[in-house]
C-alpha cells in the first residue's frame, strides 16, 4: 500500500508539474491583461507537435525543442497582436469567446498540418525505468520535474529580480498607474503572451515522450491548467504552481484508488469544492468593490 501510494504520488507530481506550467502561463497572461487565455492548452499542443515534426524532419532533439518553443512563442505573439490587442476593453464573456475561437483556430491549423494521427517524441534519456523507494520512475518524469523546477525558479526570479518582471507585476496591480510611471503596457502584454506561450510549449515538449500528442491534445491540458490557476487564486503565479501540483496529485490518487475513468471528474469536483468554500481560490486575495 505505501509503495502504491508512492507510485501514485510520483505520477501525480509529474502530471501536476505540467498543470503547474500551464497554470503559470494562465496567471502570466491574466496578470498582464485580465484575460483568461483559453488557447493556453493549444500552446502546449503546438510545442509538442512542432517538436515532433521537426525531429522527424531530421533535427536533433535539442534543436527541435528550441525551434518548436520559439515557433510557439511566435504564435503567442501573433495571437496577442491580432486577437487580443484589437479587443482591448471587451467584456469577460467576449474575451473568453475570442480566446476559445483562437483555440479552435489553432486546433484547425494543427489538424491541417498533422491530420488526426497521434505522435510521440523519443524519451530524452532512454526509457529504462529507475527504481526509487519501491516505485518505478521513468527518466522522462525526472526531466519533467527538473525542468519545471528550473522554469518556476526562473519565473520567480524574473518577477522579483528583473525590471521587466517588476514592470509586469506593476501592470497587474494597476495598469493605468503603471502606464503613468512610464511602463509600456503594450510591450508588457506581448511579453506576457510570449512567455506563457513559451512555458506552454516547453510543457508540451516535456510530456511528448510520455503521452501521445494529437491536434486535440491541448484541450484537457488547457482546462487543467486553468483549474490550477483558479485553485491557486487567479493572477497568483506561485499559487498556480501549487494548484497544479495539488490537482495532479489528487487526480493520480483518485485514478489509483477510486477509478481511472472518473479521474477528470474527481479533479473538477475538487475545483468546484474549492470554489464553493473559497470563492477566490486557495491563495487568492479578496477584493472589495467600492460603491
Amino acid at each position: 500500500m505505501p509503495e502504491q501510494l508512492f507510485q501514485f504520488l510520483v505520477t501525480g507530481i509529474t502530471v501536476g508539474s505540467l498543470y503547474a506550467l500551464v497554470g503559470l502561463g494562465f496567471a502570466l497572461i491574466y496578470n498582464a491583461s485580465d484575460v483568461v487565455n483559453f488557447a493556453q492548452g493549444e500552446f502546449v499542443m503546438l510545442g509538442a507537435m512542432a517538436a515532433i515534426a521537426l525531429q522527424n524532419a531530421g533535427f536533433p532533439l535539442f534543436l527541435a525543442a528550441i525551434v518548436a518553443t520559439l515557433l510557439t512563442v511566435g504564435v503567442g505573439l501573433l495571437l496577442e497582436r491580432f486577437a487580443i490587442e484589437p479587443a482591448v476593453g471587451a467584456s469577460v464573456v467576449s474575451t473568453i469567446i475570442i480566446t476559445i475561437g483562437a483555440a479552435i483556430f489553432l486546433r484547425g491549423v494543427a489538424l491541417l498540418l498533422w491530420g488526426k494521427d497521434f505522435y510521440a517524441l523519443p524519451p530524452f534519456s532512454g526509457d529504462t525505468p529507475i527504481q526509487l523507494g519501491g516505485a518505478t520512475v521513468l527518466p522522462q518524469s525526472l526531466w519533467v520535474l527538473g525542468v519545471t523546477v528550473v522554469l518556476v525558479l526562473l519565473v520567480r526570479a524574473f518577477f522579483n529580480r528583473t525590471l521587466p518582471g517588476k514592470a509586469l507585476l506593476a501592470c497587474s496591480y494597476n495598469r493605468v498607474a503603471a502606464q503613468a510611471v512610464g511602463i509600456n503596457v503594450k510591450v508588457m502584454l506581448r511579453l506576457a503572451y510570449g512567455l506563457s506561450a513559451g512555458l506552454g510549449a516547453l510543457a508540451g515538449i516535456l510530456i511528448a515522450p510520455i503521452t501521445f500528442s494529437s491536434y486535440e491534445a491541448g484541450v484537457m491540458l488547457g482546462l487543467k491548467g486553468f483549474s490550477a490557476a483558479i485553485v491557486g487564486g487567479i493572477g497568483n503565479p506561485m499559487g498556480a504552481v501549487a494548484g497544479g501540483l495539488l490537482l495532479g496529485v489528487l487526480e493520480a490518487l483518485g485514478a489509483g484508488f477510486i477509478s481511472s475513468g472518473y479521474k477528470d471528474a474527481i479533479a473538477f469536483l475538487f475545483v468546484l469544492m474549492v470554489l464553493f468554500f473559497e470563492p477566490t481560490g486557495l491563495f487568492g486575495h479578496k477584493s472589495a468593490e467600492r460603491v
Binding site: S259, G261, A265, F268, V271, L275
Partner: peptide, 28 residues
C-alpha cells in the same frame, strides 16, 4: 446558489467543471 456566488472567471471555471463532470458521468 454556490455556483452563482462566484464571479467572472471563477464562475466560468465552476460551470465548466460542472459540465465536464456531467459528461464524465454520461461516459462512465
Amino acid at each position: 446558489r454556490p455556483i452563482l456566488r462566484l464571479r467572472g472567471h471563477y464562475l466560468a471555471m465552476a460551470t465548466l467543471g460542472f459540465g465536464i463532470i456531467a459528461h464524465v458521468i454520461m461516459v462512465q
